[in-house]
């Protein structure tokens, strides 16, 4: 029963809250969508923290998504020992970058008084959770090696089963506690998205790649 709650109900609830909540917040309070950058108040730690964090976490997140939704591609990409070894190494490097980055950001919020002044309780919650999430991710990477392959036989079918509404929690219920914590925190973070600054991920400015430089706008007339 608990397993159904944790690995079937909770993920669905978390996804629903995350998606519906973010859309609702966007529609009702778009003004609140911002990265809440604090670089203006402190620049040096911010450079190392934010750069390491984002350059670590964004590829890591994308690779996870790849593992969930493009397992065949992922499989091909580490089907030889060399590529598997490379994947393992890349994962660890990215994870450590993210961990150090999150650590610096936490340290910065604790020690720089101007930054602490503008830190909200939610900032503490998500930053600590993210730090913990990356930490447990690295535990998995170091203690349970070759995650690039076992991932495809545990997490991937579980997520797939959830995607197609034929939940099969048995793929993950037998895994050790560290795995479970990592999975659950991941969904918790997703659920927290609409309640935190994580909404900044949802408004990644793709259109800057092609939009024209100058925007001239008439009131109630077509854009010229």
């Amino acid at each position: 029963m608990l397993e159904i709650m944790l690995f079937v109900v909770f993920p669905y609830v978390a996804l629903a809250v995350g998606i519906v909540g973010t859309i609702y917040r966007y529609l009702t309070n778009q003004y609140s969508f911002t990265s809440l950058s604090s670089q203006f108040l402190e620049n040096d730690l911010q450079f190392w923290g934010s750069t390491l964090w984002h350059y670590g976490i964004i590829p890591t997140t994308l690779i996870h998504l790849g593992g969930f939704f493009l397992p065949k591609l992922m499989f091909i990409m580490h089907s030889t020992p060399e590529t598997l070894y490379l994947a393992e190494l890349a994962g660890k490097v990215l994870g450590i970058m993210a961990l150090v980055g999150a650590g610096i950001m936490l340290y910065r919020r604790l020690t720089v008084s101007k930054i602490r002044e503008i830190t909200t309780p939610v900032d503490w919650v998500i930053l600590s959770l993210l730090f913990g999430q990356v930490f447990f991710g690295l535990i998995l990477a170091f203690l349970y090696r070759w995650g690039a392959t076992w991932f495809l036989h545990t997490a991937t079918p579980w997520i797939e089963s959830l995607t197609f509404f034929q939940p099969a929690p048995q793929y993950v219920t037998a895994l050790p506690l560290a795995h479970k914590i990592h999975f659950l925190t991941g969904f918790l973070l997703f659920a927290l998205m609409p309640f935190s600054r994580l909404v900044h991920i949802a408004t990644f400015p793709f259109s800057y790649m092609w939009r024209r430089f100058q925007l001239v706008i008439w009131t109630r007339r077509k854009v010229v």
Partner: peptide, 28 residues
């Protein structure tokens, strides 16, 4: 305006005033 990743900065065609749409600004 040219540098704004979100495209939040625009020129009003009526009078040329350059404004930052506070709803679209994402703090980049």
């Amino acid at each position: 305006g040219a540098a704004c990743p979100s495209g939040a900065i625009y020129k009003r065609a009526e009078d040329g005033v350059v404004l930052i749409n506070q709803d679209k600004c994402r703090g980049w």
